[in-house]
Write a protein that binds this DNA or RNA. Structure first.
Length: 223
DNA sequence: GATTGATCATGC
DNA sequence: GCATGATCAATC
């Protein structure tokens, strides 16, 4: 499939039809070359699935399938179903954030409904040999939504009072704030301790591994 | 093994 | 630089 799916069920069906395929097979079906390494192609797997499922492509800060209200995310897992990495969600706004509510945030929108595509992606496997798992649609449970909002509010509060440098990867139970930039020299505007404008490294929101692991457990029932 | 800072490609 | 797609890799 390369045309945008017309419905949620159509998208899910299309995604599940990829289950069990290797990335080489999916790439071949879409006339794409498989890189030898992800070192210089870090988003390659995500881009491949976007193409395979007909996502819009582009850099708009919106869901991948806005008409369906669905965000597409690939997640690398080991053979036991455990995520190998944290999951990047979106960049974090560092200015003009007074009054910003969780319900109107970009991250809440993106996480409101996610089509997870697990990828058996152990490093011992060549990129092309990595395999598509069983895709599934997820919406945060009330408790998950609560944890996300709590962490978001804690982190955004610190940012708003100029304490961004006090935030570490341990801040938050399920969300993490970490650099998200071209390199360590990238700078963007933020709020200083005295409320003055400062330059700092751009940050992004990431989902911690235990949180995404729980989502997978909840879906596949191996507890 | 977990943590977390650093980095790569691409299109504006 | 920002936003998309993330993973790499040094250090704890």
């Amino acid at each position: 499939m390369s045309q945008p799916p017309l419905s949620q069920s159509e998208l899910l069906t299309a995604a599940q039809a990829l289950s069990g395929l290797t990335l080489t097979q999916v790439a071949h079906d879409n006339n794409i070359q498989v890189p030898e390494s992800l070192l210089r192609n870090k988003g390659w797997i995500g881009n491949l699935l976007e193409i395979a499922l007909g996502a819009h492509a582009g850099s708009k800060p919106t869901q991948d399938f806005p008409e369906l209200g669905i965000e597409l995310k690939t997640i690398p897992i080991d053979s036991a179903g455990k995520p190998l990495e944290t999951t990047f969600v979106c960049v974090t706004p560092l200015t003009s954030i007074t009054g910003l509510q969780w319900s109107q945030s970009n991250i809440a929108n993106k996480l409101s409904k996610v089509l997870w595509v697990p990828i058996l992606s152990e490093k011992r496997l060549a990129i092309g040999e990595r395999q598509i798992g069983t895709p599934f649609l997820w919406q945060p449970s009330p408790q998950q939504a609560y944890l996300l909002q709590q962490d978001w509010e804690e982190i955004m509060e610190l940012i708003s009072i100029g304490e961004i440098d006090a935030i570490t990867g341990k801040t938050g139970q399920v969300l993490q704030l970490r650099p998200k930039a071209a390199n360590s020299k990238a700078l963007t505007n933020a709020i200083g301790r005295d409320g003055q404008p400062i330059k700092t490294l751009p940050r992004g929101f990431y989902l911690k591994i235990p949180f995404t692991h729980d989502i997978l457990k909840q879906q596949f029932g191996y507890n």
